[in-house]
Simulated assay, not measured.
Amino acid sequence: MSEKHLQAGDVLPAYNGKLRLFAMRFCPYAERSVLVLNAKNIDYDLVFINLDHKPEWIFNFSPRGTVPALEYEQGKSIFDSNIINAYLDEKYPEKPLQASEPLRRAQDKMIVENFAPAQSAYYTAAFNPQNLQSDMVENFHKGLEGLQKELEVRGTKFLHGSDAGWVDLTIWPFLERFLCLPLIGKTEFAMDSSKYGLLLAYIEAMKTVPAVKSYYLAAETHAKFTESHAKGDPNYNMLDTSAVCCMRPRKKKE
């Protein structure tokens, strides 16, 4: 899989019959769908998109040009991580990721909903720090406290149970990115081990989940991308070392 992000003027790769997910490597919403595909062991292709210079054809799969978008048949797609992941869980039921009981499914959705303010605070802190307000920091920690309390009440390794499920894979991409905030100077977002011991243990457990482990990026990597974004030139291809190697010979030939 290439980590190169395709942009305006680039040709759409040939369709080879597999499910194809259009994503951006540093997008938490796209990661949600990647994790569900991984957890279900579905064979799929992944195409990364430069969201600042979008290829013209992405609008054929996602009317707003957003990611993720899933091409389920050639030229046919659905978009939005919640819609995609619900579709995948119903289309491929062999390994269900949602709880079997209606009440627990509803409770899981409430966890995700209650966690949303923490996600919003993260986006402001990382990409619009000039608009960061004290109540956003409070909302961030309220979200973490609520998550830790839920872990205490459930008493299981993961929120889903002994294995990670939909609720875990939905909130994980943001927890992964939260860890980079102190590295970019936002120390008020640090997770103190004396306060968040159970949550930090959960985070370490999530890193070992096969679906997560194969796609996980360290906090330092997220910090570097965030810093490049702050400078006005997001380095989408910072992980594409193969592309860098391939570019060098071309320059010598010119």
Results as ranks from 00 to 15, higher is better:
226 T>F: 04
81 S>A: 15
208 T>L: 10
242 S>T: 14
181 L>M: 06
252 K>R: 12
1 M>K: 10
147 L>K: 08
228 S>C: 04
163 D>S: 14
99 A>M: 09
185 G>Y: 06
237 N>W: 06
62 S>C: 03
254 E>W: 00
16 N>T: 12
63 P>K: 14
32 R>C: 13
89 D>E: 12
211 A>V: 04
108 D>T: 10
227 E>I: 11
75 G>K: 13
244 V>L: 14
72 Y>C: 04
88 L>C: 06
248 R>Y: 13
248 R>Q: 14
63 P>I: 11
126 A>H: 03
109 K>H: 13
10 D>T: 03
174 F>N: 15
170 T>N: 15
195 K>P: 03
214 S>R: 10
246 C>M: 12
123 Y>A: 11
145 E>P: 00
211 A>N: 05
67 V>P: 08
223 A>Q: 04
100 S>V: 06
166 W>C: 12
96 P>I: 03
120 S>P: 00
225 F>S: 09
123 Y>R: 12
40 K>V: 05
61 F>M: 04
205 A>W: 00
108 D>C: 12
54 K>H: 04
67 V>W: 07
136 M>V: 06
78 I>L: 15
22 F>N: 05
15 Y>S: 10
138 E>C: 00
99 A>F: 03
16 N>P: 03
149 K>Q: 15
153 V>N: 12
58 I>E: 05
149 K>T: 13
211 A>I: 01
45 D>C: 04
21 L>T: 02
6 L>D: 05
186 K>Q: 15
98 Q>D: 14
225 F>H: 07
26 F>K: 09
109 K>F: 08
39 A>T: 03
94 E>G: 07
143 G>T: 08
16 N>Q: 10
226 T>A: 15
237 N>P: 04
236 Y>E: 06
214 S>M: 13
9 G>I: 01
85 N>T: 06
170 T>M: 13
24 M>A: 14
98 Q>F: 07
244 V>C: 04
92 Y>T: 01
128 N>M: 12
29 Y>S: 09
177 R>L: 01
236 Y>P: 02
86 A>C: 11
112 V>H: 11
186 K>G: 03
92 Y>S: 01
166 W>M: 15
175 L>I: 14
88 L>T: 00
179 L>T: 10
167 V>Q: 09
29 Y>H: 13
40 K>M: 06
54 K>E: 04
232 G>W: 05
88 L>G: 00
56 E>N: 07
14 A>L: 05
95 K>Q: 11
226 T>D: 09
43 D>H: 00
103 L>E: 13
216 Y>V: 01
108 D>W: 08
83 I>H: 09
1 M>T: 11
133 Q>G: 05
254 E>H: 03
207 K>M: 03
199 L>R: 02
121 A>H: 02
214 S>V: 13
83 I>G: 10
131 N>E: 14
112 V>G: 08
187 T>S: 14
152 E>Y: 06
98 Q>R: 14
30 A>C: 10
171 I>S: 10
119 Q>R: 13
157 K>F: 01
103 L>F: 12
208 T>Y: 00
123 Y>K: 13
